[in-house]
């Protein structure tokens, strides 16, 4: 009986048909996306790995010092140097390139959607449940469609990551704009703002700290997802962790784990500081 029902419904079969149809008919589109994402990814990888690691370590430390203070500056200097000594520099930069690529694309999509959701209650009502749904799914689930449409490799890794890390960018952009005080909006209007001036000279700058908090969350989600994406051959530190697990190389797994933690702390502290720009301590 159950067996019969199962063959009748054949959910897996139907799904395959839909996917096949999509890949057959939108092949060009998926190829274009793949090319584009790949191009962005490769350029970031190039930029990050082109200078000598010492130079990059110095630059990261300087950035951390400038944005987050002396403590994080020293931590970054020592931590990044350790990564280099352990021999993980290249894979760490690969991971960073994956994160940056995913986050850039996530923001290019997420911020405008967030603005739309802030401006239109209808858009908010549509976007909100979609975001809620996206955030209830476990991270692994995003790997399946990414692999189906883009096979294995870095590009599906980026796609899965950007989808996974998109929600906070949308949410906090919308929230930030909706939270702009009514009087500031009135002031902008009363001094003769066009809708464009309202957005770019009042709403977005006033909402910026909140949007930046969203950017921080997006980056941290992206980092965690990029590691998981090692399972589909995205490369970077995720691959090393996976190797450590599957081949029972405890040392390798531990060292790549330390590299991830160092990168995570660096990214978190530096982007957190963006949410507290100078001058408005309010």
């Amino acid at each position: 009986m159950e067996q019969q029902l199962r063959t009748m419904l054949d959910i897996g079969g139907w799904f395959e048909i839909v996917i096949n149809w999509l890949t057959a008919n939108f092949d060009g589109l998926f190829d274009a996306i793949r090319e584009l994402v790949n191009a962005v990814l490769v350029s970031f990888q190039g930029i990050l790995t082109f200078p000598h690691p010492y130079i990059m370590v110095g630059l990261f430390a300087a950035l951390a010092f400038w944005r987050a203070g002396i403590g994080i500056g020293i931590f970054t200097l020592l931590g990044m140097f350790l990564i280099h000594i352990m021999g993980f520099w290249e894979v760490t930069m690969d991971t960073l390139a994956l994160v940056i690529t995913s986050v850039v694309i996530a923001l290019v999509i997420g911020v405008p959607v967030g603005i739309l959701a802030a401006k239109s209650d209808l858009a908010e009502r549509i976007v909100r449940p979609v975001l809620d749904f996206m955030q209830t799914l476990p991270a692994f689930v995003y790997l399946i469609p990414a692999v189906l449409f883009f096979q294995l490799g870095a590009v599906p890794g980026v796609i899965a990551t950007l989808i996974f890390s998109l929600p906070p960018a949308v949410r906090l952009t919308s929230l930030g704009i909706r939270q702009v005080p009514k009087e500031i909006r009135e002031a902008a209007t009363s001094f003769g703002s066009t809708p464009r001036q309202m957005l770019f000279k009042a709403e977005l700058p006033v909402a910026l700290p909140t949007i930046m908090a969203g950017v921080n969350q997006t980056i941290m989600l992206a980092l965690s997802m990029v590691v998981i994406a090692g399972m589909i051959g995205a490369g970077g530190l995720g691959n090393e962790v996976l190797k450590g697990i599957t081949q029972l190389k405890i040392g390798l797994g531990f060292e790549s784990g330390i590299s991830i933690v160092i990168l995570a702390i660096f990214l978190d502290r530096v982007t957190q500081s963006l949410a507290n720009p100078k001058g408005r301590k309010s």
């Binding site: 005080p181 009087e183 009135e186 009363s190 910026l208 001058g279």
Partner: peptide, 27 residues
């Protein structure tokens, strides 16, 4: 017409000068 608000409604990301020139910048 220019308006002055009860809660000041200044733009927090702009300096005093930046706020004062805001209206002229819009025009």
């Amino acid at each position: 017409l220019s308006m002055v608000f009860q809660q000041f409604a200044l733009l927090p990301h702009r300096t005093v000068l930046g706020n004062a020139e805001y209206g002229l910048e819009l025009s």
